[in-house]
Amino acid sequence: MALTNSSWRLLQPSFFLMGIPGLEDSQHWIALPLCVLYLLAVVGNVTIIFIIWTDPSLHQPMYLFLAMLSGIDLVLASSTAPKTLAVLLVHAHEIGYTVCLTQMFFIHAFSSMESGVLVAMALDRYVAICHPLHHSTILHPGIIGRIGMAVLVRGLLLLLPFPILL
């Protein structure tokens, strides 16, 4: 027996996002500042990454960690804002189960990575203050890359079991 489109749609688990209850008529006005903030976040973070990437004098630990933080913020903003804007502007209220799990994974994993980069930035400042003459030998580009990979792997492995178990 073949499944029709409507019966297949019922078998897929999904969630229904309400938006802002009671303000259905003015949700498009609420979406306008959210859209502006999202665009500002994207433009600002891309600008920071571009400037650090193109200027060789900014290839120091503090700026590399700042570029990592901007990349993480870019992923965080891009994992939440588009669906929020879709719900508020075009009334796309339904979100699939796997899409919801993927969004949950990205939000929590990259939030965990953000805290890891902040700890790495604190380590950089500690070394710069306590061992200023050895700063460039302690935190050379290889170590910065390893710290970045450790933060990435920590964020991914820490949150990987949650969507799998759900």
Rank of each mutant, 00 (worst) to 15 (best):
A31I: 05
L34T: 07
C35A: 10
C35I: 02
C35M: 10
Y38A: 08
Y38W: 12
G44K: 09
G44S: 15
N45R: 00
N45D: 05
N45S: 07
V46E: 05
I49R: 05
I49Q: 03
I49A: 15
F50N: 14
I51C: 07
I51G: 02
I52L: 12
W53I: 12
D55M: 10
P56L: 09
S57I: 10
H59G: 08
Q60R: 13
Q60H: 11
P61D: 07
Y63M: 13
L64D: 03
L64A: 04
F65K: 03
F65A: 03
L66K: 12
M68Q: 05
L69Y: 08
I72W: 00
I72T: 10
D73V: 00
D73Y: 03
D73N: 14
L74D: 00
L74R: 00
V75R: 01
A77H: 01
A77S: 13
A77W: 03
S78A: 09
S78F: 00
S79R: 00
S79Q: 01
A81M: 10
P82D: 06
P82W: 07
K83Y: 05
K83T: 06
K83E: 00
K83P: 01
T84I: 09
L85D: 04
L85N: 07
A86S: 07
A86P: 01
L89S: 03
L89E: 02
L89N: 06
A92S: 06
A92D: 08
H93T: 07
I95D: 02
I95L: 13
I95N: 01
V99K: 14
C100H: 06
C100G: 08
T102E: 10
Q103G: 10
Q103C: 06
M104F: 12
F106H: 05
F106S: 04
I107P: 00
H108W: 06
H108I: 07
A109N: 02
F110A: 00
S111L: 04
M113N: 01
M113E: 03
E114H: 02
V117G: 00
V117C: 02
L118I: 12
L118G: 03
L118T: 08
V119Y: 09
A120T: 02
A120M: 05
M121S: 14
M121D: 02
M121Q: 11
A122T: 14
A122L: 14
L123P: 00
R125W: 12
R125C: 08
Y126L: 12
Y126T: 10
Y126K: 09
V127W: 08
V127K: 04
A128Q: 15
I129S: 15
I129N: 15
H131F: 13
H131Y: 14
P132C: 15
L133I: 08
H134D: 15
H135S: 13
H135L: 11
S136G: 05
S136D: 15
S136I: 12
T137K: 13
T137A: 09
T137I: 11
T137P: 01
I138T: 11
